[in-house]
């Protein structure tokens, strides 16, 4: 069956997360360099480099995005979030020159998602960051579309490896459309076993061999 019955909750992309989306939960687990602007009493055990009872003000440590978002306040200074390198000016210039040469999977893999999330934290650079990720998407779009539409037989793994999560999803969507059409064109209209069933069987065999 080509129509998938399991449709996971899609990621929110942009600034809003989808509460139930697995992708967004993993995205919000990405770590950000932070500086604490207040003392966190009795949480010293979270900071491995010291063995004090409290985490003192001014400590620099990495926090998952969800913590940073939860604690961050515009009016009160609780913590300051640093922009990860890929979104800073140096990299923005590289992306601006030719967005296609960059390995967004290695740099991400949630390049667009995390970039959009960074806009939650006040920074004078925010407009530039927003503009940079939009331009990167536009600049890389043609490649993703062309390869996903031509890739029926050719090997695209090298390209796909360098795509960010969002781009991969688009690439797969493009391929699905093309594959469905080409199957139809070749007249493969017969009923087939469910992919899920086939995958389950493969796993069972693999388990038996262990």
């Amino acid at each position: 069956m080509d129509t998938q019955s399991y449709l996971p909750v899609p990621p929110g992309v942009g600034k809003e997360e989808n509460f139930f989306s697995l992708d967004d939960i993993l995205l919000s687990h990405e770590r950000l360099p932070c500086r604490l602007e207040t003392k966190f009493p009795r949480l010293g055990f979270l900071e491995k480099s010291s063995d004090t009872r409290d985490i003192p003000e001014g400590t620099k440590m990495e926090m998952p995005l969800w913590v940073a978002k939860g604690l961050y306040e515009q009016k009160r200074r609780v913590l300051a979030v640093e922009l990860p390198k890929v979104y800073r000016e140096g990299w923005r210039t590289v992306f601006g020159a030719d967005p296609n040469v960059v390995d967004l999977h290695k740099m991400g893999p949630y390049y667009y998602g995390l970039g959009s999330q960074m806009l939650h934290f006040d920074s004078p650079e925010n407009p530039d960051v927003a503009q940079a990720i939009l331009q990167t998407f536009i600049g890389r779009f043609r490649r993703i579309m062309d390869s996903s539409q031509n890739a029926y037989d050719s090997d695209t793994s090298a390209l796909v490896e360098r795509l960010d999560c969002l781009e991969r999803a688009l690439f797969r969507e493009g391929q699905n459309g093309l594959n469905a059409f080409q199957r139809w064109e070749k007249g493969h209209a017969h009923l087939t076993a469910s992919n899920l069933v086939i995958n389950y069987r493969k796993r069972k065999l693999a388990d038996m061999n262990v």
């Binding site: 929110g12 600034k15 667009y112 970039g115 927003a130 688009l170 459309g177």
Partner: peptide
């Protein structure tokens, strides 16, 4: 579906700007 998803992404990224 490819086009709709792409446009959706672009819309979200534009809203950021």
């Amino acid at each position: 579906s490819f086009l709709l998803d792409s446009l959706n992404c672009m819309y979200k990224l534009r809203t950021n700007v």
